[in-house]
Design a protein around this nucleic acid. Structure first.
Lengths: 221, 221
DNA sequence: CGTACATTCAAATAGTCCATTGAATGTATG
DNA sequence: CATACATTCAATGGACTATTTGAATGTACG
């Protein structure tokens, strides 16, 4: 084995990063990690993987530089290595949306049909909040909301939406967000709200994108 | 096999994009394709792969939505599917540079030591060219220059640099570029120029990054 | 200080990917 | 219309990847 050129050596490292993100389960784990630091068992639980399997995937992502782990007492917590990981995910999304037929079909079948209206751009959220022209609705489960949410967001988990829908104002537009651009929760929430006559829209990104955009994050109930 | 959730279905598509870029040879091919439309045999030649192997890699990248092919007479030409592919590559680079130890070692050993000076940012190139304070030097082989280069760039392929070095002005700063951020050509060129007493720097990005930034591209000798 | 717990390691299996070979396809050229 | 050429397809062997299982590690708690 002759030594490869420096460029190919470097490309091998870049390829390792790509490989670390080249598995559906790992992308799913990443979406959850992007919400904030999470333990292995929490990640295994939300993604439906066995603990050993989740651990293996997490280790691969660590080797690929996507996540960083630290020990906190009995458990090991994983977080994104940097915000650049969100750029990587956005790039993967953009390419798939634009150029992969399968992705376009899935989006057309499950997502766009429910969301005829343009989502609110993450960049425009700060202004909208300031003018109080909207109500920002976090439709993730309580536990995730408690671990971190956009300041001023109201939490009504999707499963409680029917029950608590009356607490929402009819005169303001409701902007729903959840984990990320393809988390189904906000799509479902908007559909339910519109059926009840509310003016509702999705936020373009989820919590991680908002945090990266500099919006204030709060935690606790 | 039960049907996966729409989200996982979509993540599978995103993972396919990542997988398409998860091989050193494919990244190498991409760097060349990013310069402009190229045929399979040209790509095989520059990357040192057999034609069949290059073809397979190209097909995989096509399935992953990274590149698009079209037939032109006897040959098939590949090009990037969109500029978003450059964003993907930049994200992979950024993550590897920041978080993958192997990449950092390679960069420290082969690249940064030769390039103590900050490279010129792609965004600042237009201004520098307008003020005529620099000479822009394209150090790629003639053929690649002919197929597309930044307007106003002078071509001296690296292998001819020693011979033609006298044609360069000593009073202006020389900014060298080549195929991309980790193409070795410009690093070597800058090293050679400095050794001869020239004031020389690299351009941060290569031709594809400049094209994406809106700089005018010319072609022909 | 032993027990419980969270995570990782090690080993094993089934599945997938890489590079090469030679044949097949589609396009131009004489 | 036969031939040459560029590319792709099909099939192969060898290397790597994913998941599961059960054991090993390291930390906390009684």
């Amino acid at each position: 084995m002759s030594k490869p050129s420096p460029k190919l050596e470097l490309f091998a490292s870049f390829a390792a990063v790509a490989k670390a993100s080249a598995h559906p389960n790992r992308l799913d784990l990443l979406e959850h990690i992007a919400q904030g630091e999470r333990s292995v068992d929490a990640l295994a639980a939300v993604s439906g993987l066995s603990i050993a399997n989740a651990s293996q995937h997490l280790l691969q992502m660590r080797r690929g530089g996507l996540v960083i782990s630290r020990r906190d007492g009995k458990r090991v917590l994983y977080r994104l290595s940097s915000e650049r990981v969100l750029d990587l995910l956005a790039a993967l999304r953009g390419i798939a949306e634009g150029n992969v037929a399968e992705a376009q079909q899935t989006i057309a079948a499950y997502f766009t049909s429910r969301d005829s209206m343009e989502p609110l751009a993450t960049a425009d959220l700060a202004r909208a909040l300031k003018s109080k022209s909207i109500v920002l609705l976090d439709v993730r489960p309580e536990g995730e909301y408690a671990m971190g949410h956009i300041r001023d967001a109201v939490n009504i988990p999707l499963k409680d939406l029917e029950r608590k829908i009356k607490s929402l104002p009819r005169q303001k537009e409701i902007v729903a967000y959840c984990r990320g651009p393809y988390c189904v929760l906000s799509f479902e929430a908007v559909a339910a709200l519109r059926k009840r006559g509310f003016s509702a829209r999705r936020l373009e990104g989820g919590l991680p994108e908002c945090a990266a955009a500099g919006l204030p994050i709060a935690s606790g109930g």
